[in-house]
Write a protein that binds this DNA or RNA. Structure first.
Lengths: 165, 165
DNA sequence: CTTGGAATGTCAACAAGGCTGTCCTAAAGT
DNA sequence: ACTTTAGGACAGCCTTGTTGACATTCCAAG
């Protein structure tokens, strides 16, 4: 990827190609979130709740600080979401055993049910897209996404991948 | 998940693979919007203004209705954004010549300057990602994104692509 | 042991930007 | 003439981001 000195390999990097990539990313992200959004709209929840539930399911026992680093929001934003999830009995916050300042977060059975419902919808779309595009395209898709992340984001993403191999 | 009878080709469709794709999409989109967001934060504008400016630049003379279909927001949401852009002299709304009910939207020089600033930042990141991933990966990336869009979104996206070939 | 600072998390108040709903004008279409 | 369409204005709501002040807990230096 470094020494594409002359010409052929750079032909696809025209401004127009890049702009189409940008727009594709915009439209695709809309599709990507459309199904969960539809489900969430029928409840009193939004996308933020989805993200919280997703990552708590992914890393049970995680702390508030850890979660807000992953989500890239402030404590207060996350707190509001978390509070409603706890009040509604979807998430349980246990006082940390080692450090009592920490709260370890877990999904209740009810929370896990919502997570499944949301991620089933999202996975179905992802699966359809993957299947339509084929394995080779998927590999390329993943490669470009990785390259598009910031260093920090990429590290968080890698950590999650390795967490459940 | 239905007919993974024998086939090698479907091995990449495990739930774990799909989940990683979902998370990659989440983190990558954050990176994707990070640079423009940083620039916009220094002004009184947000992501909504960026989107409006982007698509007005892309399709000069577009109408309000057309724009809100592309952006997928309501008239009122768009109108608020548009009003501030017009007041600040970034966008010009000319009464339609054929149909005088319509307003044709154009960027002023000032608006075009902002658009360039924002899209330069975003294109730079896109270019870096494309370059790092290579042409084949980029082709796959585009294929999967297309497959991830809703039918409507895909049609809008195609129309934009063909609009400036 | 005490005390001061750092870390963890909560609460209050505010802004951006979505949404709905209603009402209005002007222009087109029938 | 009547209806439909394009657009704008206003009011109000919700979600989700922000900053700032505060309580609790831990830990380490004196």
């Amino acid at each position: 990827m470094s020494d594409q000195t002359s010409s052929d390999a750079l032909l696809f990097l025209t401004d127009e190609q890049l702009r189409q990539g940008i727009e594709a990313m915009f439209f695709a992200y809309r599709g990507f979130t459309a199904d969960p959004d539809r489900i969430l709209a029928t409840m009193a929840y939004g996308r933020a709740h989805h993200r919280a539930v997703h990552f708590i399911n992914r890393a049970p026992g995680t702390t508030v600080t850890n979660l807000l680093v992953i989500l890239g929001v402030t404590k207060q934003s996350l707190n509001r979401v978390l509070r409603s999830l706890i009040e509604d009995g979807l998430v349980e916050a246990r006082v940390g055993s080692a450090d009592k300042r920490e709260r370890n977060l877990y999904l209740t059975e009810k929370g896990a049910a919502l997570e499944r419902k949301l991620s089933d919808a999202q996975r179905n779309r992802m699966r359809a897209a993957y299947r339509a595009a084929g394995p080779q395209a998927v590999a390329g898709f993943r490669t470009v996404l990785e390259a598009m992340m910031d260093g920090d984001l990429r590290r968080r993403h890698q950590a999650l991948k390795e967490g459940s191999p």
